[in-house]
Amino acid sequence: MLKNLCQKMFGRSLWVYHANSGGCNGCDIEVLNVLTPYYDVERFGIKLVGSPRHADVMLCQGPAMRSTALALKRAYEAMPAPKLVFAIGSCACGGGIWFDSYSVLGPVEKILPVNYYIPGCPPRPEAIIYGVAVALGLVDKKTAPVEFKQIEFPIPQYHPRDLRRDHDMVVYEKLEKV
């Protein structure tokens, strides 16, 4: 649904606003790298604008900090709907490695509704372009949650009906039959 909305609303071009709420500048450099002639995202109609009022997409870098959370929220509210938020980098996705510092509130999703996550510290410019392509529905996302089990651990189910009191012990009858 989000994808359809994206394609409908942002069919022609995405204007992005670049907000750093306290990152280390690594992600800023990568985002700017995406806009250089080498990766040239203006091919896809993506353009950097200087004001949130002109923007369709907010690129968030850095965690939500105590000092910038309010400003970030105000910038988000200034954007005209429909709007998308991209969390770029580990800081924006999960709080970064200083997530337990006194000045870090946590990931930006604590402050804003985030639509797409691009993890990495910093993410490669290709990863950022890939994230935009995922948002536009050009490619499918590659990640899926993974779960492994070393063994199927049999947890015995004790039914009270099979429990029998024997002097001062409780005996599980089925075990004796095995």
Binding site: L2, C93, G94, E109, N115, Y116, Y117, I118, P119, G120, P123, R124, E126, A127, I128, Y130, G131, V134, A135, K141, K142, T143, A144, P145, V146, E147, F148, K149, Q150, I151, F153
Partner: peptide, 19 residues
């Protein structure tokens, strides 16, 4: 792997149940 962009952050997790 670096093309890990996703719309659900839970997609990035890995869970191991170890004996």
């Amino acid at each position: 792997e670096f093309e890990n962009a996703t719309n659900k952050i839970g997609d990035l997790g890995q869970k191991l149940e170890l004996f």
